[in-house]
Amino acid sequence: MLKRVHFPTSLLPYLLVAPQVIITLIFFIWPASQAVYQSFLIEDAFGMSTEFVWFENFTYLATDEQYLGSFGRTIFFSVCVAFLSMSAALILAGFADRIVRGATTYRTLLIWPYAVAPVLAGALWVFMFNPTLGIFPYILEFIGVDWNHYLNGNQAMALVIFAAAWKQIAYNFLFYLAAMQSIPRSLIEAAAIDGAGPVRRFWDHIFPLISPTTFFLLVINAVYAFFDTFGIIHAVTQGGPANATTILVYKVYNDGFVGLDLGGSAAQSVILMFLVIAMTVVQFRYVERKVEY
């Protein structure tokens, strides 16, 4: 065994990590512990008195049909967003990888949507799909679709899924393209000589070889759909109609700041916090592993 190097104890290392520790304490540990504490309280509607109730907020959530419905919707929403944005990004990256001329131009253009703020992305889609003045409802009318996401919950859900997926394509595209470009060219050429056409080469070689990236993106996209889509939903549907697009993170906001049920809202955010922790653990345990070859 190698001898470990010993440095004389001094204050310096503690000073150097202090800023990071302070930031974490102030902006994460403190609010998180406040949320946990708050989730054990019930306030009256006027904020005059609070009562410590242990897990009553949580047991109530476990039986609340609206909350459980929102849970199911969130999972459906996340699966759709992840699948749509990842498959679109995969196709785009597959084509961008084959291009030689003008590759940087295409790449730059495809990355742009990522620079759009979520609320603005939502606003764009609201205008495009506005039932009275949007271009898409006008076009959809020709094929017999009566579009009104203010009234039709399924259409509202579809709209936020598209908007959220569209925004994430650029991010996924970047990772997929980088993964594809790290595959040795000669490997693909060997497959071509072996007689595999472009589609076959993609499914037999490129797709399996970028599977670590796919898994990584799956976790990232799930986290994105769970937590970062608040802005889009707030701008497009505000959780409506009739809660059809109220996913968990939107319900936290709605119950807390609109419904003023601070304890219930805190309990929901504590549940979400544990979900994030679980996903992060999954990511570190399995994704950080190196590619198998």
Binding site: E189, D194, A196, L209, E292, Y293
Partner: peptide
């Protein structure tokens, strides 16, 4: 290339890393 009835051995071997030796040889 596939239609020319040729086989090529590359400098870095270009073996398919996710396939066994048997699958590598059988692929074509």
């Amino acid at each position: 290339p596939a239609e020319r009835d040729i086989a090529m051995v590359f400098q870095n071997y270009a073996l398919y890393p996710h396939m066994s030796v048997r699958e590598n040889m059988a692929y074509g």
